[in-house]
C-alpha cells in the first residue's frame, strides 16, 4: 500500500500548464527527489501535492491530512521561544513535541526566543517543526538552501530517520543529499506542450 499515488498529474503556474502527465508512487520508507531546471514547475508540483493549489488534471491519492509541507520560510516566530513554536505546531497538527526536541537536540535551547538562534539551530528547529506534525509524507521545497555541509548532513540524517520510521519524502533540491535510497524524477521530461486544451488552466491558456 503506497502512501502517495500521483496519477497523470498536470499543474499550472501563471495560468499555464507547467508539467503534465506526471505519475509516481511513494511507499513507506521511500523518498523521491524532483529535478529539473529552474522554472520547470517543481515548486508548483510540490504545492499541488500539499493541497495548496488545485491540480489542473490528474489525481493525487493519499489519506487525508498526511502531508507536512515545508519551504525555506519555515513558519517560525522569532518572538516565541523554541518550545512555544514547537508546542503551537504540535497542537495545531495534533503531534508530539518530546521526540522531536530530542532528535534535533534542542533541549538546551527550549526557552530561547527563536529569533536568537543561529542559522544551523534554526534549521534544526525547522526540522523539529516538521517532525511534530506527525505526518507521514514530507513535502520539502529546496530545504537545503543556504545550509552548510554539517547542516546538510543533519538534514539528510533526519530524512533517513523519518523514512526508517515508515514515512516518505518528496522534495525538490539541487544539492546532493547523499540519500542513496532516494529515487529521482526529472520534470523536464514532462514539460507541458502548448496546444488546444478542454479546460484551460488560466487566462494564458484560455486565450492562447
Amino acid at each position: 500500500m503506497s502512501l502517495l499515488g500521483v496519477h497523470d498529474l498536470a499543474v499550472a503556474r501563471g495560468g499555464m500548464r507547467a508539467v503534465e502527465g506526471v505519475s509516481f508512487t511513494l511507499d513507506a520508507g521511500q523518498a523521491l527527489i524532483l529535478r529539473g531546471p529552474n522554472g520547470v514547475g517543481k515548486t508548483t508540483l510540490l504545492r499541488t501535492v500539499a493541497g495548496l493549489q488545485p491540480p489542473v488534471a490528474g489525481r493525487i491519492e493519499m489519506a487525508d491530512d498526511s502531508v507536512a509541507y515545508a519551504a525555506h520560510a519555515d513558519g517560525l516566530k522569532g518572538a516565541l521561544t523554541v518550545a512555544e513554536n514547537l508546542r503551537f505546531w504540535a497542537r495545531v497538527f495534533g503531534g508530539q513535541v518530546g521526540a522531536a526536541v530530542q532528535a534535533m537536540n534542542l533541549g538546551g535551547l527550549a526557552d530561547r526566543p527563536a529569533a536568537s538562534l543561529s542559522a544551523g539551530q534554526k534549521r534544526r528547529l525547522g526540522l523539529a517543526r516538521l517532525m511534530v506534525t506527525g505526518r507521514p509524507i514530507w513535502v520539502l521545497d529546496e530545504p537545503t538552501v543556504s545550509l552548510d555541509a554539517d547542516s546538510v548532513a543533519l538534514f539528510a540524517a533526519a530524512i533517513r530517520a523519518h523514512l526508517a520510521g515508515g514515512g516518505a519524502a518528496l522534495m525538490a533540491t539541487h544539492i546532493d543529499l547523499a540519500l542513496d535510497e532516494a529515487g529521482a524524477l526529472d520534470l523536464s521530461a514532462y514539460r507541458a506542450r502548448p496546444g488546444k486544451v478542454d479546460r484551460p488552466a488560466g487566462f494564458n491558456e484560455a486565450f492562447a
Partner: peptide, 16 residues
C-alpha cells in the same frame, strides 16, 4: 506576517 514567514502555508495544510 504569517504569509511572509510561511505560517499561512502550514495553517492551510493543517487539519483546521
Amino acid at each position: 506576517l504569517d504569509f511572509e514567514d510561511g505560517s499561512l502555508d502550514l495553517l492551510a495544510t493543517a487539519p483546521i
